[in-house]
């Protein structure tokens, strides 16, 4: 009996406090988009409609989690001097897989997001998590970190897409919600609209959390 409890203490619980923090931190206090200000380029490019944004979120989640896992598994074998190119190779391969699968099984969606899926390779969040976390942590923790970071990214771009599609096209998921009399706001259709909305999200979040950038 007693030996069992010792063993249990040694191995950490599947969702210990520390691990929960790995997931929840990037959602709010350490959000990749609003606090670290990473991945802004794709947040501007894909968010004019909700559907491609959702597909993009799923694709980024897949790429971040698996690249984190693979890099974490290989972290002790990857040569330090070429680690960036190795990470890039892994990320790029995963992105190509996502793109190919979309083209084969979700052709209509891939026609819309096809151009942007390739952009995941250059999404700083992916590389950022690999460098900052996966290179130094165990696989399971890295998966949780990838989950947290990609969800932190996903909720921000989904909120942006919600407002942009609503105000820019008067629709949600291509279903008309605003009356026909509503004149579409062209500013929201263009990437400038995303800047304004992201700015507002950052403003509201910092006001709520009292976050101040270190000088």
């Amino acid at each position: 009996m007693s030996t069992e409890t010792v063993a249990a203490k040694k191995s950490e619980a599947l969702f210990s406090k520390r691990r929960k923090k790995i997931i929840t931190d990037p959602l709010d206090d350490d959000n990749p988009v609003t606090v670290q200000v990473l991945g802004i380029c794709s947040a501007l490019a894909v968010t004019s409609k909700l559907e491609p944004t959702l597909v993009m979120s799923v694709a980024v989640t897949f790429v971040v989690i698996f690249s984190n896992l693979i890099v974490s598994l290989l972290r002790n074998t990857i040569p330090q001097r070429i680690r960036i190119i190795v990470q890039l190779g892994i990320v790029a391969s995963l992105v190509i897989i996502v793109d190919q699968v979309l083209r084969a099984y979700l052709y209509d969606v891939s026609k819309v997001v096809g151009v942007y899926v390739g952009l995941i390779i250059t999404n700083c969040i992916v590389m950022g998590r690999l460098e900052a976390f996966a290179m130094a942590n165990k696989p399971y923790d890295s998966i949780l970190d990838g989950l947290g970071s990609s969800f932190g990214y996903a909720w921000v771009i989904l909120v942006v897409a919600f407002f942009r599609e609503l105000l820019g096209s008067g629709t949600l998921f291509d279903i008309r919600v605003l009356p026909e009399a509503y004149v579409n706001n062209g500013l929201m259709s263009s990437p400038v609209g995303a800047f304004i909305i992201i700015g507002m999200i950052i403003w509201v979040q910092r006001w709520r959390n009292g976050y101040v950038e270190e000088a």
Binding site: V86, G89, I90, S93, I96, Q100
Partner: peptide
């Protein structure tokens, strides 16, 4: 390491692209 990585990733991608080609 670089050579092995190139072969593994290249082979993987070629296999996937090849097997999905007909469906695409």
């Amino acid at each position: 390491f670089a050579v092995v990585m190139t072969i593994v990733l290249g082979g993987l991608l070629a296999t996937i692209a090849g097997s999905l080609n007909a469906t695409q």
